[in-house]
């Protein structure tokens, strides 16, 4: 359905925006390396079903591979800036202070509690959902501490938040048309969108209506 495709596309757009800008400018300021590492972890744990070869469709398989590949490429590019632009890189690391273990740990526990089946694949899948819902936190934390963000960062976060927001009508759609309700996806998806909502509001006020981006 349309919401899902638009959601996937905006997800893809967010990664492309990030990839292209980092590649072109060799700048990493405002981007949280920790958030990007978490996304690699999210994709790798979620798309483990690629290894079972029970592929759903060409689109599905291709997108999964693209997401894993692109997220790894982002890390590579950021690491590249370490040599190209060491001052900006160090500054980014210095401001990227939210500890990953406080996110990964609780997500692992939540995955053990909330899952459909106690198998490795299902546990990893559930873990990836929980982790995705909070993976943006290091990035948002960084933003809120610095109070300023480059347009790149804001567009990136916007596209990423839009993707999860679009998945919500997708779930409503699927609930009525397919009698399908994936409770874990819906709950973690709502949680994730909620984390973005504050950001959306500020984005709308500052970026859409002109003027720079500043957090209170």
């Amino acid at each position: 359905n349309i919401f899902r495709i638009l959601g996937d596309l905006s997800h893809l757009a967010s990664i492309v925006i990030l990839l292209r800008t980092v590649q072109k400018t060799q700048r990493v300021d405002g981007i949280s390396l920790k958030t990007q590492i978490l996304y690699v972890l999210v994709f790798c744990t979620r798309y483990l079903d690629l290894l079972t070869f029970r592929w759903k469709s060409v689109y599905n398989t291709l997108m999964k591979m693209v997401f894993i590949g692109a997220s790894v490429r982002v890390i590579q590019l950021i690491q590249g800036c370490k040599i190209q632009n060491p001052v900006a890189y160090k500054d980014m690391i210095f401001r990227d202070t939210l500890q990953i273990k406080y996110l990964v740990g609780p997500c692992a526990v939540l995955a053990l509690i909330f899952n459909y089946k106690f198998t490795l694949l299902e546990l990893c899948w559930s873990f990836s959902l929980w982790l995705e819902s909070v993976a943006i936190l290091p990035q948002l934390f960084m933003l809120s501490r610095s109070g300023k963000a480059s347009t790149l960062t804001t567009h990136y976060i916007f596209a990423l938040g839009l993707y999860r927001a679009l998945y919500i009508p997708n779930w409503i759609w699927r609930y009525y048309s397919e009698d399908r309700l994936e409770k874990l996806s819906v709950f973690t998806g709502l949680l994730q969108t909620a984390l973005y909502s504050d950001f959306f509001y500020i984005y709308y006020k500052k970026v859409v209506k002109g003027a720079g981006f500043e957090l209170p």
């Binding site: 899902r4 996937d8 997800h11 979620r46 079903d49 759903k56 599905n60 997108m63 999964k64 997401f67 459909y116 089946k117 299902e122 899948w125 998945y167 997708n170 609930y175 009698d179 399908r180 309700l181 994936e182 409770k183 996806s185």
Partner: peptide, 10 residues
């Protein structure tokens, strides 16, 4: 409503 085990979303 079923809770499917097939995860077909991205």
């Amino acid at each position: 409503t079923s809770t499917p085990l097939e995860h077909d979303e991205l």
